[in-house]
C-alpha cells in the first residue's frame, strides 16, 4: 500500500489494484498538488517576495520539508515541468538505469545526517553539516532549463545557493584551478553500486574549472518546487550547472576538492570519445551516436514536438565569455 498525503487529504491506493488504475490514481493526485501549490506559491512570492510551503509526503520518499527561498533574476519565465515528471524521470544510475528506477529505489538512501567535506587546495578545508549550511545561506529559487545529453529537456524550479558561497568559505589557494565532486558511495543503500554489471565506476565523480564553479549560475541545490529535494533528484545536496548536459550536475555530494589538475569525471572515464570534460550544451556538436540539434521537451504528451537546442542551453549571454577563444568541438 502506498499513501500520498496532499494538503491534509490522504489518498490510499491499494496495491492489489491493476497497474492501470493504480498509476492513473497516483498520477492524478500528484498532478493537482504540486502545480496548484506551486502556482499559489508564485502568487504569494509576487506579493511577499519570500514564502514557505506546506509539507507534503512524496511517493516513496522521506518527508519533504518546506524551504524559504527568494526569487532570482537568473530564473527563466518558462513554465516549469510538472513535479511528477521531474521526480519520476531520472538518470541516477546508483539506483538503476531505468528512468523510473530512482523513484522506486532511492528511498533507501539516508540523507540525514549528511556531511559535505570541502578540502584540497584551500586555506580552510571544512566539513559542512548540511543542516547547518542551510541555516547559514540565503536560499534562492532558480528556475533553470535542464538539457539531458540524451536529447530531452525540462524546466526545473530548484532551491539552492551559489556554489561560490561554499568555495569562498574555504578560501581556495592561488594554485587551485579545478573543482572535483564526489557522490556518496554506499552500496548498501544504492542498488546500482552493487549491480552485477555496474553501469559506471563508483563513486560517481564530476569536475568543473574553478571559474565555472565560481560562476553565479552554478548552484548547489537542496530543494525542488519549494521543498527539500526528493532522494531521486540528488538529496540532500547536489550541483546544478544549467548550461551543461545534465550528467555534469552531480547528485548527493559528499566531497568537493579544489585541485590543480583537471579532475577525472565519470562519463569521460567511461567513454572519452562520447563525453568530454566540458560537456557544454551545444547544438552544433553532435554526440557521436545522435544529433544534439534538437530536444524533446518532457511532459508535453505523446505528440510533443522537438524544439531547437540553444548554445549553452540558452545561457550564452552569461557564460560564453568563459570559453572565449576555445574550440568547442575540441573541448566538447
Amino acid at each position: 500500500m502506498e499513501t500520498l498525503a496532499t494538503q491534509g487529504s490522504v489518498r490510499i491506493i491499494w496495491e492489489d489494484q491493476s497497474m492501470f488504475i493504480r498509476k492513473s490514481a497516483a498520477v492524478r493526485s500528484s498532478e493537482i498538488t504540486p502545480q496548484e501549490v506551486f502556482l499559489e506559491r508564485r502568487r504569494l512570492i509576487m506579493a511577499a517576495a519570500a514564502v514557505g510551503i506546506s509539507a507534503a509526503i512524496p511517493k516513496g520518499g522521506a518527508v519533504a520539508a518546506a524551504l524559504q527561498a527568494v526569487e532570482s533574476r537568473y530564473s527563466t519565465d518558462e513554465a516549469p515541468t510538472a513535479l511528477k515528471h521531474i521526480t519520476n524521470y531520472n538518470n541516477y544510475y546508483e539506483f538503476g538505469v531505468g528512468k523510473e528506477d530512482p523513484a522506486a529505489n532511492a528511498h533507501t538512501l539516508t540523507t540525514k545526517p549528511w556531511t559535505l567535506a570541502v578540502d584540497g587546495l584551500a586555506a580552510r578545508p571544512t566539513d559542512f553539516h548540511v543542516e547547518d549550511l542551510l541555516s547559514s545561506v540565503a536560499l534562492e529559487e532558480r528556475i533553470y532549463r535542464l538539457r539531458c545529453v540524451e536529447g530531452w529537456s525540462m524546466v526545473i524550479p530548484w532551491v539552492g545557493f551559489p556554489l561560490s558561497e561554499v568555495l569562498g568559505r574555504v578560501e581556495p589557494l592561488g594554485s587551485a584551478r579545478y573543482v572535483a565532486f564526489e557522490t556518496v558511495l554506499r552500496p548498501d543503500e544504492m542498488p546500482g553500486q552493487r549491480a552485477f554489471l555496474p553501469a559506471l565506476e563508483w563513486p560517481y565523480v564530476e569536475g568543473l574549472r574553478l571559474d565555472e564553479a565560481m560562476h553565479p549560475l552554478t548552484i548547489l541545490a537542496v530543494g525542488l518546487y519549494g521543498e527539500t529535494l526528493p532522494n531521486q533528484n540528488g538529496a540532500p545536496i547536489r550541483l546544478v550547472v544549467p548550461w551543461k548536459y545534465g550528467f555534469k550536475s552531480i547528485k548527493s555530494i559528499v566531497k568537493i576538492t579544489l585541485t590543480e589538475e583537471q579532475p577525472v569525471t565519470s562519463w569521460n572515464r567511461q567513454n572519452p570519445r562520447e563525453y568530454g570534460f566540458y560537456s557544454n550544451v551545444n547544438p552544433e556538436v553532435d554526440h557521436p551516436r545522435w544529433s544534439q540539434a534538437t530536444e524533446m521537451p518532457i511532459g508535453k504528451g505523446l505528440f510533443a514536438k522537438r524544439k531547437p537546442t540553444l548554445l549553452f542551453n540558452g545561457y550564452a549571454d552569461e557564460v560564453a565569455g568563459l570559453y572565449a577563444g576555445m574550440d568547442l568541438r575540441k573541448f566538447f
Partner: peptide, 15 residues
C-alpha cells in the same frame, strides 16, 4: 496509454 497520458514523462520514447 500514450493517448491518455499514462506513459510517463516521455511518452514518445516509451512507445
Amino acid at each position: 496509454l500514450g493517448l491518455t497520458d499514462q506513459l510517463g514523462a516521455n511518452p514518445m520514447r516509451t512507445l
